[in-house]
Amino acid sequence: MSEAMLDTPLDPALDPTLDPMNNATNPVEPFLRMDRMPHIWCPGCGIGTTVNCFARALESSKLDLNKVAIVSGIGCTGRVAGYANLDSFHTTHGRAIPFATGLKLSNPELQVVVYSGDGDLFAIGGNHFIHAARRNMDIKVICVNNLTYAMTGGQTGPATPTEVISATSPYGVFEPSFNLVQLAEAAGASYVARWTTYHVKQLARSMEEVLHKKGFCFIEVLSPCPTLYQRRNKMGDGLDAMKFYKEVSKVRNGASTGECALTKSGEIVVGKFVDRDRPDYMELLNRQMTATLGERYATPEVTCSEG
């Protein structure tokens, strides 16, 4: 991603597109289904920020957008697919990854991005996550982690830190939570990074990076939920969340993921933690079949033809 792009000024005086009275189109509009606006997300929610980063990453990636597909599960982040101006799939709860697996294997020229939330990907969908990482399936998983089930009213999830008050933990969470980046690395992901919605430049850069990286890639984005998470925990509004992220985040690229666990108010280690090259599923499949079957092996041609 070009620095010029990342440095888009946020001052309407410097950038007329930011002036609400100006009818010029927003630069990310071509990447969105504008006929579906306004979106459903609350004021102060961070999901829109991640989508903005994703749109900018798509633009700077120079990928043919007809060959990029986005798959979401269920929840607030599950709605991202519906707003992206791409071939998009809003699947069932937790199943975005296995859907994406079928999509990618049947149509390998697609770049398949899974965009979903922490509850969807790591509770109901947790098994699919670790197996796709194990296989090094060539899909890119972006997890917007707001530390709660927001769509259903702010219940405890697998990433909710202890001591947090939630709709289903009115006396405080006592279950240990997952360290998502450590889980991703242990399961075999080729690329693992974590950012917050305060780190928009770094996030957009990571997203662009994974769009050009082979294998199972994982980006965790910490994102505020003022309506259901912060309010219950007296953590202020969306702006307070930005201040909090700014204050407690420490950029440590290459940090050991085992030391990146999250707590309610402690340090948030951000950065790119893993970037390694492992053969992906299709490469392993082709290698094995060629070694075993030689010329009898027929390269998969999965799509069916018209009449």
Binding site: F89, T91, P98, F99, T101, G102, L103, V302
Partner: peptide
């Protein structure tokens, strides 16, 4: 659900 991803990718 993987089969349905495959169908939308063009497969039977």
């Amino acid at each position: 659900i993987a089969i349905q991803g495959a169908v939308w990718g063009g497969a039977k």
